[in-house]
Simulated scan of single mutants.
Amino acid sequence: MKSIKSLSALGISGLLAIALVTGCGTGEKANQTAGQASPEKKVIVMGTSADYPPYEFHDQSSGKDEIVGFDVDIAKKIASELGYELKIQDMDFNGLLPALQAGRVGFVMAGMTPTDERRQNVDFSILYYDAKNTIVAKKGSNLTKPEDLKGKKVGVQLGSIQEGDAKELAKEIQGMELKPLNKIPEIIQEIKAGRIDAAIIEDTVAKGYTGANPDLQFHVIPPKGPNGSAVAFPKGSKNAEEFNKVLKKLKDSGEMEQLVKKWFEQK
C-alpha cells in the first residue's frame, strides 16, 4: 500500500483547516471544515500471511473474501484501543519482514516467533501466545518423532520458524531432505499426493489441517528452546510500547484467553 506524504497545515483564517493524518506504513487525508470539527484519523497497516489458520486465513462464508483469525481479532482490539483504523495487507510469509523494513506495513502479525536472528532486524512485542512444532504426516506412516524423518522428504513454510528448526534437525538426521513452500495448503497437498513424506508445522495450525483431513495426523516435537508468537515492528518503533500495554491489558482482563478458546479450543 502506498504512503501518502504529510501535508502542512494551511492557515486560512476561519474558513478551512486541513488535519494532518499519519499512520504506520500508510496514511490518509482527513478534511475539517469551519464549524465542523472531526477527530484525527490514523491508519495502521498490518502485514500478514493469511494461509495460517487459525491465526489468519481467508473466509468466504459471508459471500465476500475476508481475512479473519486469532491474530486479526487481537490486531482489531489493539487498533481500537489505540485509535487506529486497521488495514490488512496479505503476502507470502517470507516477504513480511522485508515489507516491514521497507515501510510498506506498520507491523506484522503472522504467528511469528521472535528469534535472535529476526531481532537483529526488527523489534518485537511481548509474547501473546505460545505454541509447539509438530510432524504432520499420513496416518499409518509411523513418522511420529524427529528420528523417524531419516531419509524422508519434509515440507516447511518458506521463511517460517519451522524452516529454521527443520534445518537444524536436518543437520542431526541423516538423509532428511527439506522442501520449502510458500503456503501451508501447498504443503498439505504435497503430503496427500505423496510428493513429500511429512511436514513440520505449528501445533495449532496442524490441528486445524488434520481435523479437515482425516487421513493425516500430527505429533508434537518436544521444544528445545523458546517458542511463541509476538508482533513485529520496524527497529525503534514507538508502537511496540503502546502495543505491549494493550496486550498486557488483554491478558489481565481475560480477553486474550477468550480469544484463545474461540480460535483454538473450539475448532
Score class of each variant (00 low, 15 high):
Asp215Phe: 09
Glu56Cys: 14
Lys76Ile: 07
Ile201Asn: 01
Glu163Asp: 13
Leu96Met: 07
Pro146Lys: 05
Leu259Cys: 03
Pro98Leu: 11
Glu177Asn: 15
Lys29Pro: 12
Gly175Lys: 10
Arg195Gln: 09
Ala131Pro: 01
Tyr129Cys: 00
Pro185Thr: 07
Leu259Lys: 00
Gln101Lys: 15
Lys42Leu: 15
Val72Cys: 02
Tyr55Arg: 01
Asp116His: 11
Ser6Val: 07
Ser49Arg: 01
Leu247Glu: 01
Pro185Asp: 06
Asn239Thr: 10
Ile221Asp: 02
Pro185Ser: 10
Lys29Thr: 11
Gln157Asp: 13
Glu241Leu: 06
Asn244Ile: 01
Val21Lys: 06
Ala131Asn: 08
Lys152Asp: 06
Met1Ser: 15
Phe243Val: 04
Glu168Arg: 10
Ile161Met: 09
Lys5Leu: 11
Pro222Gly: 05
Phe57Pro: 00
Asp123His: 08
Ser160Glu: 02
Phe107Glu: 02
Asp73Cys: 03
Asn213Ser: 10
Gly27Thr: 06
Lys64Ala: 14
Gly11His: 15
Glu186Asn: 04
Glu168Trp: 03
Ala199Thr: 01
Val105Met: 09
Asn182Cys: 09
Gly151Arg: 10
Ile44Gly: 00
Gly151Asn: 13
Val231Thr: 04
Ala137Met: 05
Val43Phe: 03
Gln189Thr: 09
Gly69Met: 06
Pro54Gly: 03
Glu255Gly: 01
Asp252Met: 06
Val72Met: 04
Ile173Ser: 00
Val21Asp: 13
Leu178Pro: 06
Ala230Tyr: 03
Glu40Asn: 05
Ala30Val: 15
Leu15Asn: 10
Ile4Gln: 10
Asn244Cys: 03
Asp92Ser: 11
Glu28Val: 14
Asn244Leu: 03
Ile188Met: 05
Met176His: 03
